[in-house]
Design a protein around this nucleic acid. Sequence first.
DNA 1: AATGAATGAGTCTTCATTCAT
DNA 2: AATGAATGAAGACTCATTCAT
Lengths: 205, 205, 205, 205
Amino acid sequence: MTVDALVEATARILIREGYDRASTNKIAAMAGVSIGSLYQYFPNKEALVAAVIERHNQQLWQVVQNALVKVAARPIEIAARELVAAAIDAHRVDPKLHRVLAEEVPRAGRLENIEAVERNARAVFRSYLESRRSEIDVADLDLAAFILATTVEALTHSAVLHRPDVLADEKAGAFVNEVTGLVLRYLRTPSKAPVKRARQARRSG
Amino acid sequence: MTVDALVEATARILIREGYDRASTNKIAAMAGVSIGSLYQYFPNKEALVAAVIERHNQQLWQVVQNALVKVAARPIEIAARELVAAAIDAHRVDPKLHRVLAEEVPRAGRLENIEAVERNARAVFRSYLESRRSEIDVADLDLAAFILATTVEALTHSAVLHRPDVLADEKAGAFVNEVTGLVLRYLRTPSKAPVKRARQARRSG
Amino acid sequence: MTVDALVEATARILIREGYDRASTNKIAAMAGVSIGSLYQYFPNKEALVAAVIERHNQQLWQVVQNALVKVAARPIEIAARELVAAAIDAHRVDPKLHRVLAEEVPRAGRLENIEAVERNARAVFRSYLESRRSEIDVADLDLAAFILATTVEALTHSAVLHRPDVLADEKAGAFVNEVTGLVLRYLRTPSKAPVKRARQARRSG
Amino acid sequence: MTVDALVEATARILIREGYDRASTNKIAAMAGVSIGSLYQYFPNKEALVAAVIERHNQQLWQVVQNALVKVAARPIEIAARELVAAAIDAHRVDPKLHRVLAEEVPRAGRLENIEAVERNARAVFRSYLESRRSEIDVADLDLAAFILATTVEALTHSAVLHRPDVLADEKAGAFVNEVTGLVLRYLRTPSKAPVKRARQARRSG
DNA sequence: AATGAATGAGTCTTCATTCAT
DNA sequence: AATGAATGAAGACTCATTCAT
């Protein structure tokens, strides 16, 4: 299928050349398709990249979705660990592409959906927390969902993309343990009274 | 003079147009300087953006540095809260610029130093943890430093850049509390035994 | 089509403007083609000029080649005259272009083949001399080939490009006679003993 | 003297960079002078190059002139050899610069005097031939002067600039012998009757 | 549906030259 | 006299996009 070849070629070129050196001509060439055909299926370059994002998101979502389903009825201890592992797997789907999408593609126009998966995951994760309300000890469920989703995404992203050492065979388990522990302690330990003289975050110019 | 105007103009254009629509001609125009003058001070576009990154990093570092100094001899409870607040302040130095640098500028060639501050902060933060070794309960100090620095960066980044609601005047305190709590519980609560049937993160293709 | 138009336009612009005022934009305009099309067929300006040189050399070579073939089996007296005439004809193929190529185009990179024809001609001419070894009286065939080829090239070049008077209808015959005479006397007259007190060419700094 | 430094720097840059990569800024820098000062002494780049040509021609002329004076009253056998040697010496004054001037500098505007020396030499040489009219056997003195001057220039130019092998210590004498022989035979041997069926040089398009 | 030649606005960059100090 | 910051026209080249076939 021409469309598939083009999306695949776009992904490969994005990885090889980076976002701003990726040209539609190179993409068409790599797809083994004429530039004319490219424009028969995609109105412009943005749409091409959007399709890549779409496809990549779909794949990530699959991984996360699977984990969420599997874990839906399990207690938090199990769920946390499983979801952390799933987050790592998700980042491993196509790390190089993920890096380019995360670090180079401008979130403008049709391309603003790069973070769609994260939003999705956040929402579904919030639902999960809600269903486990009794087991956890947090004041603001929304805030907790935001904090945990962001944290787990950042840690697994960073580990997979920038710290391969942390995920080396013999250490990966420890990493998962640590992140899981971070999550669980946050959800279950009653926080101590806030420090008295605590200052608020200052406003800057 | 001219150099400053150019760096400032570059930052403004990056914000207004994004990385790949930022042209040296627009930058020169915005700086009120001829294109020739631009090239008298900067060998190419990359160098201009590198200077912006340099300057931005300097400013961020100032903020983080100040907090670290102030907190160097204080107990973790205080330090954690202070550093979270500092991380928020740092992200508030120039959030729009920070967003472009984080999301659009390719880390290639001279531009790979975008994350220099993060590396710096991570290292200095690790030193701090080391000095407080007795107060904390973690197995691997390096790993803990990586986890906490990444977490705090991600949370404050995300809050400042994407979730202004979370930092609204009446809620900012709660956010800082939560993040601080996340950090402290991680550092002080002995983790429970890992879940028995826990699976390791799977290797992907 | 387009390629030919571009090469032709390049030649015309080279003649009209000289090498360093010849711009790819002017060339495209003169060819009645967009600048984009120009770069679809030629990777850069150098390649365009190289194509002009190639084409010009081809034409020159045709002329010289024809003469050499016609003369291959003839005695020196005939051959010399014929080749001198051919050299004149060759320089008349496109004298203005020839002047620019000879005097302005830097022999660098892909452009170093400007003198390809001369090298060719020298080699084939040497072969001819070899085949006529018995009729001629020179010590060093290589040296003789170099001397005669250089001489005839220079004289016909100079006459065609700078001394039209010398080639005026009623005088052209005399010029050919003279050059032919120069060549034949060199090839056939045993040189007298070199002057006794002759000094060698001095080395310079 | 600033002027001298500039002319010298221009020559050096011409050699190092070629004509069209030679910029006034580089020249000023190499001369250790500000670009402003450069324009205090030379109205434009052309004038600078003209000065280099001027100076180079002066030096060449010196060499040729000396030889001509020394030889003025000597018989042709001596003179020919001496002048050939002088021509070699002249080309050795600054061969690299000579090459650039000969092959890259456009003979336009003020720069058309590149060949001034050759014209000079031709004229003076003609005078010499005239003074030796009785010793030589040529029909047209002008033509003979043109032919010999062009020939000797071309051969010594080519040898010095492109065929160092021909001027290697042990072979230089042979080269001078050959060229001298070429000249003398041309001047003294009565030419045989022109070949009967000789065709004239054809007119080309 | 597919092709690929053609387009031309727009990009980065150079460089001869000016002029206020 | 000297400086060198500033200028901006102009050049080489790229690339998203169109359209006739």
